[in-house]
């Protein structure tokens, strides 16, 4: 009886060992070259965004995401910080753009320029590059940037 038990354990172990085929389960490698983390910009600046993408399955799409990180996300109300500018016209800036101009490439060098609008309120922002490969794997690289008040 015990032999049978161990036999089954052995079968499980073999099944386990037999199925370790390597599949691509991770998104493109993103090397964000510019801007640097915690870089400071003022309204009207042109932000030069430079990065490298690499993926063995081929890049599918990528997205540039810039959004306000001051008080927008998921907080406790205990820390409800009122923005320094109560100016109604100064909305938090949000930039979202999806690109597929590198589709199919296993490595790519990308340079984009994004201009900071003049009517936004300053503070801490997240700047992220999100990328997918042809298998649907996704990766992100985020940094913090500052827009001067």
């Amino acid at each position: 009886m015990k032999t049978k038990f161990f036999l089954y354990v052995a079968i499980f172990a073999l099944t386990l060992a037999a199925c370790s085929d390597d599949k691509d389960t991770t998104g493109p490698e993103i090397k964000l070259l510019q801007p640097e983390n915690e870089a400071v910009f003022t309204r009207g600046d042109a932000i030069s965004i430079v990065f490298d993408l690499a993926d063995p399955s081929g890049v599918n799409a990528y997205k540039i995401d810039i959004h306000y990180a001051g008080d927008e996300h998921a907080h406790s109300h205990a820390l409800d910080v009122t923005p320094a500018h109560e100016d109604e016209e100064e909305e938090p800036w949000e930039f979202l753009e999806i690109y597929d101009d590198q589709k199919g490439k296993t490595s790519a060098h990308v340079e984009k320029t994004v201009t900071v609008p003049n009517d936004i309120h300053g503070g801490e922002y997240h700047l992220g590059i999100l990328a997918t490969d042809n298998e649907g794997n996704e990766s992100q690289a985020y940094i913090d940037i500052d827009i001067e008040e």
Binding site: H73, H77, A78, L79, Y142
Partner: peptide
């Protein structure tokens, strides 16, 4: 949403249920 350091700050009350 993306976690932020501010949102993760200890609010001193472990029993409250915030947003």
């Amino acid at each position: 949403g993306l976690p932020t350091t501010v949102a993760l700050e200890d609010d001193g009350d472990y029993r409250n249920i915030g947003l």
